[in-house]
Deep mutational scan, measured.
Amino acid sequence: GFPHNFQETTYLKPTFCDNCAGFLWGVIKQGYRCKDCGMNCHKQCKDLVVFECKK
């Protein structure tokens, strides 16, 4: 597997964290999205993600 390539992201529609399944709250920059596989997560979850990037 590969490490994720997370970038701070502004979501335009309701989005949930792929790590904890919690809602990504806020208006802008609600969470992080992996540029390579599209995984979404909270800032506090991005260092805890157990799934490797599937590129």
Score class of each variant (00 low, 15 high):
1 G>V: 13
1 G>E: 13
1 G>K: 15
2 F>R: 09
2 F>G: 05
2 F>L: 04
2 F>I: 14
3 P>A: 12
3 P>Q: 15
3 P>V: 14
4 H>W: 00
4 H>K: 06
4 H>Q: 01
5 N>T: 12
5 N>S: 11
5 N>K: 08
5 N>F: 07
5 N>D: 10
5 N>A: 09
6 F>M: 13
6 F>W: 02
6 F>E: 03
6 F>C: 09
8 E>L: 12
8 E>N: 08
9 T>P: 01
9 T>Y: 13
9 T>H: 12
10 T>R: 03
10 T>D: 04
10 T>P: 02
11 Y>V: 06
11 Y>M: 11
12 L>V: 04
12 L>P: 08
13 K>Q: 06
13 K>H: 13
14 P>R: 01
14 P>I: 02
14 P>M: 04
14 P>Y: 04
15 T>Q: 04
15 T>G: 02
15 T>K: 04
15 T>V: 04
15 T>Y: 03
16 F>S: 06
16 F>M: 06
17 C>I: 01
17 C>A: 00
18 D>T: 15
18 D>I: 09
18 D>A: 13
18 D>R: 11
18 D>C: 06
19 N>P: 06
20 C>D: 03
20 C>G: 00
20 C>H: 02
21 A>E: 12
22 G>D: 07
22 G>T: 05
22 G>H: 10
22 G>E: 08
23 F>D: 04
23 F>R: 06
23 F>C: 08
23 F>P: 04
23 F>G: 05
23 F>H: 02
24 L>H: 03
24 L>P: 02
24 L>N: 05
24 L>C: 09
24 L>I: 12
24 L>G: 03
25 W>C: 03
25 W>P: 11
26 G>W: 06
26 G>N: 02
26 G>L: 03
26 G>V: 01
27 V>F: 14
27 V>R: 02
28 I>M: 14
28 I>T: 09
28 I>S: 09
29 K>D: 02
29 K>S: 10
30 Q>C: 01
30 Q>G: 03
30 Q>K: 02
31 G>I: 02
31 G>M: 03
31 G>Q: 00
31 G>A: 10
32 Y>D: 07
32 Y>E: 08
32 Y>W: 11
33 R>N: 15
33 R>H: 14
34 C>F: 01
35 K>Y: 14
35 K>L: 13
35 K>T: 12
36 D>S: 12
36 D>H: 08
37 C>K: 00
37 C>D: 01
37 C>T: 04
38 G>Q: 06
39 M>W: 08
39 M>D: 06
39 M>P: 00
39 M>R: 08
39 M>Y: 10
40 N>D: 12
40 N>I: 10
40 N>L: 04
40 N>H: 09
41 C>L: 12
41 C>F: 05
41 C>V: 14
42 H>C: 04
42 H>E: 02
42 H>Q: 01
42 H>V: 00
42 H>R: 00
42 H>M: 01
43 K>H: 08
43 K>S: 13
43 K>N: 04
43 K>E: 13
43 K>T: 12
44 Q>W: 13
45 C>R: 01
45 C>M: 02
45 C>P: 00
45 C>G: 04
45 C>N: 02
46 K>H: 14
46 K>E: 13
47 D>E: 12
47 D>L: 09
47 D>T: 14
48 L>N: 05
48 L>D: 15
49 V>P: 08
49 V>N: 14
49 V>L: 06
50 V>E: 14
50 V>Q: 14
50 V>A: 11
51 F>D: 12
52 E>R: 09
52 E>A: 11
52 E>V: 08
52 E>T: 12
52 E>M: 09
52 E>G: 12
53 C>W: 10
53 C>Q: 14
53 C>M: 10
53 C>N: 15
53 C>I: 05
54 K>A: 06
54 K>F: 07
54 K>V: 06
55 K>N: 09
55 K>W: 04
55 K>R: 04
55 K>S: 14
